[in-house]
Write a protein that binds this DNA or RNA. Sequence first.
RNA 1: GGGAGUGUGCCCGAGUGGUUAAUGGGGACGGGCUGUAAACCCGUUGGCUAUGCCUACUAAGGUUCGAAUCCUUACGCUCCCA
Length: 401
Amino acid sequence: MIPVEEQLRVITSGAQNIVPLEDLRKKLEQDRPLNIKLGVDPTSPDLHLGHAVPLRKMRQFQDLGHHVTLIIGDGTALIGDPSGKNTTRPQLSSEQIAQNAQTYVDQAVKILDPEKLTICHNAEWILSMDLKKLLEVCSRFTVARILERDDFTKRYNAKTPIALHEFLYPVMQAYDSVVIKADVEMGGNDQLFNLLAGRELMEKMGMEPQICLTMPLLEGIDGVRKMSKSYGNYIGLTDSVDDMFGKTMSIPDEMIVRYMRLASPLSVDEVDAIEQGLADGSCDPNAEKRHLARALCDMYHGAGEGEAAEERFNSRFRDHEMPENIAEHPCELGETVYLPALLKEVGFAGSSSEGRRLIDGGGVKLNGEALPGGTYEVEGASLDGAVLQAGRLRYVRIVRK
RNA sequence: GGGAGUGUGCCCGAGUGGUUAAUGGGGACGGGCUGUAAACCCGUUGGCUAUGCCUACUAAGGUUCGAAUCCUUACGCUCCCA
């Protein structure tokens, strides 16, 4: 295995919290493959780049020669993680959980090396636990210790209900670490409390306690709020290559290095060099953003896909060429066609009034020619086979039904 | 249980009887510029085949020639006291 200091440079790159760093060094000095744990909650089927951040860090551990254990929290999902929530989470059905878990694994193996990966389902040991065992584990925690947790404190003070079973979430997650004998547990920074509970439980049960390593929560493509499906600022791992490339190109320049470091497969050395280059002006931000976009597309869609996506991107967005494949929209074409209604019909406008405004604002083109304001009526025959365009991005080919 | 507020368009927020589809900001969309970044400039942001018509300021009633603005009730939210 490579020298400890080298390993630490890779491991600490982009990490938010390592508790305690000194103990991590000691573990690495044992010069053996460490067991790195990441628990995932299969509560949502769609993964985005933010979810990939801890997975990327896991991959770096693998590349350094360590072993990774991915725990599918199909047992803990029945409880629902209280992290960052101010209400009790709804409990999911087992079918839903199983389905989400499968999607998660499908995505995760695109990032992780399957050779150095163990996947477990914690329902295996959590749901089969008998009361005696449960009591033994629970006795290691005090109520005060669990209540210390910020989320609980807030809810308790705010008098919002905390169901008794929610106390068990950190306890069960901690028990996972005991079962798989974790050396390091990873998570987003909001997971720190849960990770620390694992450290505590292991110590109380006479084991060498795990190291807690948290990663920052990645900002979305707006560069401000954390990446989240509900904010609509996410890059989905299953997004099409073109979407993935395009969305990446729209992130603020300030986010380039952060995305590279946290979510891309670029090496720490490369990222360090680029960061330096961007700071002193010897690297071009646009070129580096393209570099990032290609790297992400290659990782999720296969080698070479990034370059292909870039070419399409150039033709469409830089050179403003019409895309090759334009969806066809069959519709009735009378003698004359009321264009605002057609814009509404094809989904370019929410109402025909909005369609009118779009035309008046010069945003509507027919076969590449901008229509002058007030052009609401168009000859039906001239529309057959014509390309209708709204703004720079939306195209549709009109054909007679 | 008692008391005080408050509810406006996608969001925030002006407006306290009369040229009001309702000031302003954010967001979004369109145009220019361009690197689908930032910054900047301009336009649009209730519906309707439309110099007009219709529906709108939580909901339902009421007062008035006239209501987002006043009154009543309901619902939602906030705060204080017990």
